[in-house]
Simulated assay, not measured.
Amino acid sequence: MKTIGAADTITKAYIRENAVFADAFNYLIYGGRQVVNPEELKEVDTTEIIIPFNTYDENKDEKKNAAVQKYRDVLKSTVIMQDSQAAYILLGIENQTDIHYAMPVRNGIYDFLQYGKQVSDIAARHRKQKDKVRSHAEFLSGFYKTDRIVPVVTLVVYFGSDEWDGPVKLTDMMEKLSSTLMKYVQDYKIHLIQPYGISDKDLQKFQSSLREVLGCIKYSKDKEKLWNFMKDNPRMNMDIMAARVIEVMTNMSIEISDGEETIDMCKAIEDMIEERACIEREEGKLEGKLEILTNLVKDGILNMQEAAKRMNMTTEEFRTKMK
Rank of each mutant, 00 (worst) to 15 (best):
I89W: 04
N59Q: 14
I269P: 01
H126I: 10
Q305M: 09
A66C: 10
M304A: 03
T250A: 00
D202L: 07
R72D: 12
D8G: 09
D57L: 12
Y184C: 00
L41M: 05
S208G: 01
N233L: 02
R276Q: 15
D73N: 07
N54Y: 07
T171G: 03
F139W: 13
K169M: 05
D271K: 10
L41R: 09
I273N: 08
E212N: 00
D83F: 07
D258I: 14
L214Q: 01
G142F: 06
M236S: 14
A124N: 15
L181E: 14
E43Q: 14
A7K: 10
E62L: 14
E283K: 14
E306G: 00
F229N: 01
E291Y: 09
L75H: 08
V248M: 00
N303T: 02
D61K: 15
R235L: 13
M103D: 05
D98C: 10
R33E: 14
A308Q: 01
M272C: 10
L177N: 12
Q194T: 13
D98G: 13
S135D: 02
A137F: 12
P195Q: 07
M230P: 00
N237T: 02
G92K: 04
D23F: 03
E48R: 09
E163G: 06
N233S: 07
L181M: 13
V35T: 05
D131W: 03
N95P: 05
L296D: 09
S257D: 07
N59R: 15
E175N: 12
N107G: 12
G5P: 11
M311C: 03
Y115C: 08
M238H: 09
M230S: 01
A19P: 05
D239Q: 14
L177R: 13
K64R: 15
R319Q: 15
G32Q: 03
I10E: 06
Y196T: 09
A277D: 06
G300Y: 08
S84M: 13
I50D: 12
I93M: 06
R148A: 14
V157C: 10
N54V: 00
K70S: 15
E212H: 02
G259W: 08
E287L: 11
A6D: 12
S77K: 11
L113T: 11
R281Y: 05
L91M: 07
A124E: 15
Y71G: 01
D187M: 00
I109M: 12
T314K: 08
V213I: 02
G160W: 02
L75N: 11
S141G: 04
V133Q: 12
A24S: 09
R276A: 14
E48K: 09
T97A: 12
K145G: 11
M252Q: 05
L170Q: 01
V150Y: 09
G166P: 00
E270Y: 10
Y196I: 04
I51C: 06
V248F: 01
T250E: 02
M252E: 07
S135T: 04
A268D: 02
I51F: 08
M173W: 08
K205L: 14
E280K: 08
R319S: 14
D23K: 03
N303R: 03
C216W: 02
D222F: 04
I80Q: 06
S199D: 04
L293N: 02
K63H: 14
Q96N: 11
N65H: 13
E306K: 08
F206K: 03
K130H: 10
D239H: 13
Y110S: 02
R127N: 14
E282N: 07
Y14S: 06
T314I: 03
V79A: 07
L28D: 10
D165C: 11
D98V: 13
E280S: 09
T78L: 04
T262H: 13
